Simulated scan of single mutants.
Amino acid sequence: MKNILIFFRFFPSVGGTERVFTVLANSFITNGYDVHIVSIEKSLDVPMFYLDKQVKCSILPHKNVACQENIRTLHSYLIDNEIDYIINNDSIKEAVKLCSEAKENTNIKLVTIHHGDIVYKKEYIYLMAQQGSGLKRFLKNLFFPLYLKYQNHNRRENHKFNLLKSDKYILLSNSFKKYLPQNDKIMAINNPLSYMREEFSGAKENIVILVGRLSEPHKRVLLSLKIWSIVADKHPDWKYYIVGDGEDRGLIENFIQDNNIPNVVLTGKTESLQYYKWAKILIMTSAFEGWPLVINEAMQNNCVPIVMYSFDSLPDIIADQENGFISPNNDIEVFADKLDRLMGDEMMWADMSKKAYISTARFIPENIIKQWIDMLNTL
């Protein structure tokens, strides 16, 4: 039996990364591996997502990720449990340093996975520039082009360090490889589906959904509302559900009220699966993403996606005009036209809905775990 240790900074916790790797941890168990999860901190007392009882969870003693105490503790854990592979779920330099130094003088292989874009989008750096207060925040915004360049320089240096210290460096999409120098250590493995894949056979309702944290300018919910305001009066029997909660809910509520936008429902924090089953269309207007789980979650429930092309991995998920629509980034009018057409053409929607479901077979856990196992066997 091979032994795998999966490292998180935060576990148990809430988020897409945790959901993906609980699915993978369970799949490794099913395939005969012994699985351990080691973290620095926990945000929840118990995992939010189903985790096989055979998975062993531990927490390192110190919150300073790469401190010597953590390195010594992790090294002892690796030896005592005869670990063969470390899958490092956090590509920050401190996490890679911790894992690489803990396995020194062993035959343990280190696989680091990078979740997200390889280079920072300016919208993300803008969010970083708003953090803090006083002179530091003022200077970051005043010299924003230099701050953006500085952050991406650090990002590239971090990737170099990760490649040097890891035996494999996993990206979520082949489209991200172009930002890194050619290296045999680099490999792309897509995220698996989060839910069991069962074709939805019930009646769908005339509902459009957006699923995500209510956070501007990341998710750009206000942009989606501008799009909805263009099509809403043409389709009075349709509703727009914004599924999720977040720090900008008040801003969004005020925007809806001030602009008299009809047929919009804010669900608050809730389980999204039921909305995938009810809705016919998912829209996404995010400023940046890595590999957003919500698109495949919608498609596996026959919900057709329309997504702004703001992140490189999107064509890996959506075949434009086949199983969904890819819309030019920031173009509200084009997006609204695609949404209007899909809402008004039941035959088009039915065809794309079926193709959306079929296309998600690529991402079932059995297929994704095979790629992981094949990769580990090459090390």
Rank of each mutant, 00 (worst) to 15 (best):
K2I: 06
K2Q: 04
F7C: 06
F8K: 05
G15A: 07
G15Q: 03
T17W: 02
T22C: 11
L24V: 09
L24G: 12
N31C: 11
G32E: 09
S39A: 03
S43D: 14
D45C: 06
D52A: 10
K53Y: 13
C57S: 08
N64R: 13
A66Y: 07
C67G: 12
E69L: 14
E69K: 15
T73R: 12
L78D: 02
L78Y: 01
I79H: 01
I79K: 02
D80I: 09
E82I: 03
I87T: 07
E94V: 00
E101R: 09
I108M: 10
K109Y: 02
H114A: 00
H115T: 02
E123F: 06
Q131E: 13
Q131P: 08
S133P: 09
P145F: 11
K149F: 07
H153I: 13
H153P: 02
E157R: 07
F161P: 00
N162C: 01
L163Y: 03
L163C: 07
L163M: 06
N174P: 09
Q182K: 14
N190G: 10
N190P: 09
A203C: 14
N206M: 11
I207V: 15
E216D: 05
S224L: 09
S224K: 03
L225H: 11
I227A: 14
I227S: 12
A232H: 14
A232T: 15
W238S: 06
V243K: 01
R249Q: 08
L251I: 07
N254V: 07
Q257T: 12
Y276H: 13
W278M: 15
A279V: 13
M284P: 13
M284Q: 15
V294K: 11
N296C: 04
A298V: 00
Q300L: 09
V304T: 07
M308P: 04
G324K: 03
F325R: 08
I326C: 04
N329G: 13
I332L: 12
F335W: 01
K338S: 08
K338V: 10
M343N: 02
M348H: 05
A350E: 11
S353K: 01
K355C: 07
Y357D: 02
S359G: 01
A361I: 12
E366P: 03
N367S: 07
Q371A: 09
N377T: 03
